[in-house]
Design a protein around this nucleic acid. Structure first.
Length: 287
DNA sequence: AACCACCTCAACCGCGGATTT
DNA sequence: GAAATCCGCGGTTGAGGTGGT
């Protein structure tokens, strides 16, 4: 939570809406929640920039959107993360890295913010305590992890956010084996870090042919993820942590055969509303 | 009771892609 | 085609809560 009196630093294209004099910041009151929820129920989502004014709220559009998406939306599930959800988060993070919106899109009722928080406060520590590097999902002593990977008790660095280095070996080899890489377009625009430099083009699929995005349908991508997540290879990975690579070097045929349409939790709802369009956003600046 | 350290998570920030003008 | 604006993402912050001493 930020202190409402905190000043907004400039420089961003979005600063204007947040820096307007008189706009309220900080925690939402129940009255504001009610106004926002009622308005959206009446008029629908979208037009966030103008929504506060239309709804009669002294908030910026971003704040309204965030509040709705993370808290007020009827589909948001509150409360404890169930063990099966936790397991799914682990699997998805292993596949996708810190793509919280993607992960959240496959866990009904959970928001990216919630999952991100849960990861930073629980799961990353849990993995570390199990001797697993939360970035790579490989054994900690197997990669030369730096001291900052260790749990920190420092207030100044309370929740280390590991740089995502998901194990893409499985994803990539699956791509190479079964699907034309560009069809999945998982990394248009150098989307996220590719820990395996041998996988040429995996980090920038379709850069040479952006038209390929047209072949990447939600169904295809969703099914692809489902099949990967459902693979026993991930269970094996966590139980037999010492030998990740041989296990994942050759995904079973079921990954793209029988298991192709296997649901995870709620495939229809789960698939992120923005994917694969934004699958690769922002990663470039971070890696 | 008071203090301190740590933890949690709602909210904000900065950025970049997409869309509109 | 360029500029402006909108939208949504991942990273970060810090107030409030909790537990230990």
């Amino acid at each position: 939570m930020r202190h409402p009196s905190q000043t907004t630093t400039g420089g961003s294209k979005t600063t204007a809406c947040c820096a307007k004099v008189g706009l309220k910041r900080g925690p939402w009151t129940s009255e504001e929640d009610e106004v926002l929820a009622n308005y959206i129920r009446r008029e629908g989502e979208g037009q966030w920039r103008t929504l506060p004014k239309r709804a009669g709220l002294l908030r910026c559009g971003k704040s309204c959107r965030l509040r709705w998406m993370n808290y007020l939306r009827p589909s948001v599930k509150r409360g404890h993360i169930a063990p099966d959800e936790e397991d799914l988060i682990l699997r998805l993070h292993r596949l996708l890295g810190n793509r919280w919106s993607l992960i959240a899109g496959r866990i009904p009722g959970r928001t990216d913010n919630e999952i991100k928080n849960y990861w930073n406060t629980h799961l990353s520590k849990k993995l570390i305590s199990q001797g697993i590097d939360p970035r790579t999902h490989n054994p900690l002593n197997a990669d030369h992890s730096s001291p900052e990977d260790k749990p920190s008790s420092s207030k100044s660095n309370p929740t280390p956010t590991p740089t995502p280095t998901p194990n893409h070996n499985l994803v990539a080899s699956a791509l190479e084996d079964t699907v034309s890489g560009s069809q999945l377009l998982m990394n248009k625009g150098s989307g996220y870090y590719n820990p395996n430099p041998n996988l040429h083009n995996f980090n920038g699929l379709a850069n040479e042919n952006d038209n390929d995005i047209n072949y990447c349908t939600d169904d295809v991508f969703s099914s692809f993820l489902n099949s990967l997540i459902n693979e026993d290879v991930f269970n094996n990975q966590y139980h037999i942590q010492q030998q990740p690579s041989p296990l994942i070097s050759s995904p079973p045929a079921s990954a793209f055969g029988v298991g192709w349409d296997a649901p995870i939790m709620s495939s229809a709802e789960g698939f992120n509303r923005h994917e694969p369009k934004r699958f690769n956003d922002h990663a470039e600046k971070r890696f």
